[in-house]
């Protein structure tokens, strides 16, 4: 079989740059402004299945109940239920590597959130570790209003 000739093949550099806008919506905005102005983390509870969701959502995706008004204040402490160590540096990452991304279940919540864990050697992190939120009220309104979590006593 004749081999293909690739002498005319080359690579063209390109870029995809497009602006977009994310709307948090009423529920997401309440969550973020409460986080910013009161340093308080709010979840929502589904009365039907009893689950407390964080981040909050308008609908319990399991029962499809409308839970937008069922706010519950959560503790800013919780437990690491899973984690990974990010070691490969990339311009899109929020921290210099190596750093720890953890799944943290706050006290009072049934669903974990993903966040950065600092103040602990990446090789010493473990499931079950108690952590607390460190707030950054000066940040733009995103989940980085919590700057990171760190080990709690």
């Amino acid at each position: 079989m004749q081999k293909d000739d690739f002498s005319n093949s080359y690579v063209v550099e390109g870029k995809l740059a497009l602006p977009y806008t994310y709307f948090a919506g009423r529920l997401g905005s309440t969550f973020l402004t409460t986080l910013r102005d009161q340093a308080r983390i709010m979840g929502v509870r589904c009365d039907k299945c009893g689950k407390v969701f964080l981040p909050p959502r308008q609908t319990c995706e399991r029962c499809l109940e409308d839970i937008r008004d069922k706010w519950v204040a959560l503790e800013s402490t919780g437990v690491v239920v899973n984690f990974t160590v990010v070691r490969q540096q990339d311009k899109h990452l929020p921290r210099k590597t190596p750093y720890v991304l953890g799944m943290i279940k706050l006290d009072g919540a049934d669903t974990p959130i993903v966040h950065i864990i600092e103040g602990v050697d990446p090789d010493k992190i473990s499931e079950g570790m108690r952590v607390k939120a460190i707030f950054a009220p000066e940040s733009e309104p995103s989940i980085l209003l919590i700057n990171h979590f760190e080990p709690a006593a």
Partner: peptide, 26 residues
């Protein structure tokens, strides 16, 4: 102008209507 909802919330408005229209649950 739908700054008041995020994507899943907006979608859910139609989903809820369709379920109600059919008289079905999820």
């Amino acid at each position: 102008h739908r700054e008041d909802v995020n994507q899943p919330e907006m979608i859910h408005e139609a989903v809820r209507q369709a379920l109600d229209d059919a008289g079905l649950g999820i």
